[in-house]
Design a protein around this nucleic acid. Structure first.
Lengths: 329, 329
DNA sequence: CTGTTAGCGCATTCAG
DNA sequence: CTGAATGCGCTAACAG
């Protein structure tokens, strides 16, 4: 028995002949290692978990693919869980993953309440935050500078001359979205604007997807004075907004500018091509998995990796219609 | 010990008082069930695996989300694996999932060689085919009628008057793509056309994504006589083709019609809005997971569930430019 | 190099 | 309802 075990886990110390015999025997019998038994015995798990807001959202599916690729290099597989931004689901999945004994969890949290995540980490299941800063929590994290992303949006629209901007926002508790909104406000303030007049928040009911964004367009158009630009929290919402504006007969960008976020693969191919904020998605996931796999290694220290977003200017934003603003340049 | 076990697995037979005491104790101690030990003891696994061509492709990520949702209802989680249409990766993932002891595997195979999958199923890990017919294999399957999808494409383009059609195809071994091509040919034959003249296959090198599709446009445009329509095997490829045509200054649909496949959420919002074949994605995944969970139940028999695709007519297809065909209507 | 043994955490069985 | 004992498949430690 121990020789067989050695062939599997310590091949070098077994003589070539014996090893061959064992391997042949395994092949003929159709032997398959029992992962559960190995794990029970203390072997590292061959799975890692990720708990994301929505794995069907192209942003997250791309992030997950990055994780998957990095994990595969270390012989691990990825368990994918979607919370739909519901705290109860997040809690449930974290518990299930802990029971499963995953090597660690990549968590895009539904809010900044990280108590459960920190406790999980303490109990021995490493947690890496995704798209959320470490803050005071003793965890690793991979993030994108969302405040900067918001600033980029503000700077771009201000430069075009917009002075009244609708901000579509979904779940205010999701940190990355809060940060973007903060950055956007900061950008307006830096330009000397009165935020309460310049920025109109428009809240989307859950699940805050494409359909909800489309429905919210009517509310934006009904505002007085009417905003001249709509900032969306992701490209999917922007697609919904574009659909809503089209059916309302509002020209983009002539009568209304639309700004997305994520730069999904198809963003440049929309009608009109979407101006948006690009973030490195696959890299984000890969970096997260990288941090996760490094946990537990000797000398490991918690780290935060931060990526930088980037404005991609296309055709969905332009100067506001005449009479709606003073042009700055 | 057995009382604790009963509280967890057989709560009804434990008196309320004792149950409470046990639950309180578990809470204060921070007890977490050990999934590996349970599984070793014979409990059903809390995971199912899926092996897809590319989890980052919106089609598959939507399918996976359907699987995830259905599994969650039964307290299970989904392990997601991407093969990138490589047989070696498929084999590797199937082995890993078997070791892991998943409840079953949802497999979108890279080819019609199902030997390994059938063997896996025989050894006790149920396999459900996704987007691939059962054929002679004794497995469950969820499929879409891909041949019909190809026919729909042919009928639509013929009706518009196209008589020379480029077919972008990626990996010919993927059954769903083969079936679509067959259906397309069948549609042309049914209209009395000479397939060898009417259909020009254009093969994309792996990974056959958006970029490869974009690059292939030049080859299509160089063909003599030049085709008047390009049929793509999915919407992502269609986006690439549209990008390529745009940069070549070819008008869609004036000079070239483009037909997609999948009807991804953004298809209607592209420039021009993409004519495509819709397939039920989330339902496909959900149905697959449903079959998987039913395996092993008493009286289970292998089944195949087949969905029907649907043509969604939008603006990327139109009659060919004058002089390129006889109009039929 | 090979055989033996113990124990990982759990569920189950059998006695009380 | 509770306590004790057993074995799932594997690995590590040790004795031959």
């Amino acid at each position: 028995m121990s020789t067989v075990s050695n062939v599997l886990n310590n091949p070098t110390i077994v003589s070539t002949g014996t090893r061959r015999r064992v391997e042949d025997a395994m092949a003929t019998v159709g032997y398959v290692r029992n992962g559960a038994a190995r794990q029970l015995r203390g072997a590292p798990s061959m799975t890692a978990g990720c708990v994301l807001l929505d794995s069907a959202n192209p942003f997250f599916s791309e992030v997950a693919r990055g994780m998957e690729d990095r994990l595969a290099e270390s012989g691990c597989m990825l368990v994918v869980c979607s919370t739909d931004v519901r705290a109860d689901r997040e809690t449930r999945y974290l518990n299930m993953l802990e029971e499963l004994g995953v090597r660690g969890v990549l968590l895009a949290p539904v809010s900044s309440d990280l108590e459960a995540a920190v406790a999980l980490d303490r109990r021995g299941t490493p947690v890496v935050l995704v798209d959320h800063p470490r803050g005071r929590a003793r965890l690793c994290a991979v993030t994108v500078d969302n405040a900067r992303g918001g600033e980029l949006a503000a700077e771009h629209l201000l430069e075009l001359g917009h002075r009244r901007i609708a901000l579509l926002h979904a779940e205010v508790r999701v940190r990355s979205l809060v940060d973007r909104a903060d950055g956007l406000r900061r950008g307006l303030v830096a330009a000397g604007l009165d935020v309460s007049a310049a920025l109109v928040p428009v809240s989307l009911p859950p699940p805050a997807g494409l359909a909800e964004a489309e429905a919210a367009v009517a509310r934006v158009l009904a505002l007085a004075p009417r905003p001249t630009a709509i900032v969306c929290f992701n490209d999917m919402a922007a697609v919904g907004v574009m659909r809503g504006l089209r059916s309302a007969g509002v020209d983009i960008p002539g009568q209304m500018s639309v700004l997305g976020y994520d730069d999904l693969v198809f963003a440049g191919q929309l009608a009109p091509a979407l101006t948006t904020i690009r973030q490195p998605t696959r890299e984000l996931g890969r970096a997260g998995a990288d941090l996760l796999l490094a946990e537990g290694l000797p000398g490991h220290r918690h780290r935060e990796i931060r990526f930088t977003p980037e404005l991609v200017t296309r055709q969905s934003t332009a100067a506001p219609p005449r009479g709606h603003s003073r042009r700055t340049r």
